[in-house]
Structures are given as structure tokens and as C-alpha cells.
Simulated assay, not measured.
Amino acid sequence: MAYLFLFGAIVAEVIGAISTRFSEGFTRVLPTVVAVVGVVGAYFLLSRALRAGMGIGVAYAIWAALGVCAVALVGVLFLGESLTGVQAAGVALVIGGVACLELGGQH
């Protein structure tokens, strides 16, 4: 159940981040409301994952890393942003780091 809450937190964070881009400095109402609800929802769901027994180090690493990777992917696929080779390598390193944290915590 903890991973389900964590997945929801990641989705909410991505929605909040993308909405922030469209809020034009929080001057547009709807994107601003969606951004705030997304970020607050992300923290709420993260807290539920922690309450369900997930360790904070692993939960935060997965949440942050997959959120960053998802936002970068959405930017490239839907918002016309580019991703250089160095940036793609950085994304791969982030994913690898999270995998190491997860695998290192298993006994």
C-alpha cells in the first residue's frame, strides 16, 4: 500500500510542477490552483506512504527522482523542450541512484 501512496504522490507532484509552468508566476488562477492542490496532495500522499511503513530516505528519493524524471519527460514529449545527452545521462544517474537506495535497503 505504501508504494501506491508513493505513486500517487509522484503523479500529484508532476501535475503540480507542470501546472506551475502554466501559471505565469501564479498570475493565472486555474493553473495556480491546480499547482497548489498538486503540491499539497503530493505531500499528503507522501505522508501516507511514510505512515504505511516506507522509510523516509527511500520514499523521498524515489518521490523526488521519479518526479524529476517524469517532469523532464513531459517537457520533452509535450512541451517542446529539449534534452541534451548530458541531461539524459543525468536522468539515468538519478534513476540508478534510486535503484541503489532501494536495492541497498533489501536484506
Rank of each mutant, 00 (worst) to 15 (best):
Q87G: 14
R51P: 01
V40R: 11
V68Q: 08
F7W: 09
S23D: 07
V14P: 14
V29F: 11
A42N: 14
A92D: 04
V39S: 02
W63I: 00
R48F: 03
R51Q: 14
E24Q: 14
S19F: 07
V36I: 15
V40I: 15
A89H: 05
I18Q: 00
L6D: 05
Q87S: 13
G97S: 12
A59Y: 02
V40L: 15
F5W: 15
T20K: 01
R48D: 05
V94Y: 13
V11P: 11
G90L: 09
A12H: 00
G90H: 08
L30S: 10
E81T: 05
T20F: 03
L50W: 00
C100I: 15
G80M: 09
R48H: 05
M1R: 09
V40G: 09
M1P: 01
A88D: 07
L101Q: 14
V14M: 13
A64M: 14
I18K: 00
V58R: 08
L46H: 09
A42T: 10
G8N: 07
Q106K: 15
V94N: 04
R21P: 00
V11W: 11
L6S: 02
V29Y: 02
L83R: 04
L93T: 07
G96M: 04
A64E: 13
R48T: 06
L103G: 02
S47N: 14
G25Y: 09
Y60S: 12
G67Y: 12
R28A: 05
H107L: 15
V94T: 15
R28G: 10
Y3S: 08
M54W: 10
V39C: 01
A12N: 05
A35L: 02
I10A: 09
R48G: 03
V58Q: 03
A35D: 01
G80F: 04
C69V: 15
V58N: 01
V29H: 03
V11A: 13
G38W: 08
V37E: 01
V58E: 06
G67A: 12
V33Y: 12
Q106L: 14
I10L: 13
P31N: 00
R48S: 01
I10S: 06
R51L: 15
R51C: 13
V36M: 07
A42Y: 02
V68L: 11
V40F: 15
V58P: 03
R51H: 11
L93K: 12
F22Q: 08
A88N: 08
A2M: 02
I10T: 10
A92I: 11
L30D: 00
L46K: 00
A17Y: 02
S19D: 04
T84W: 07
V37L: 13
C100N: 02
F78G: 05
F78P: 04
E24A: 12
A42Q: 12
L45G: 07
F22C: 04
V29T: 10
S19W: 06
A92G: 08
A52E: 10
M1S: 07
G8K: 06
V39M: 10
I95M: 12
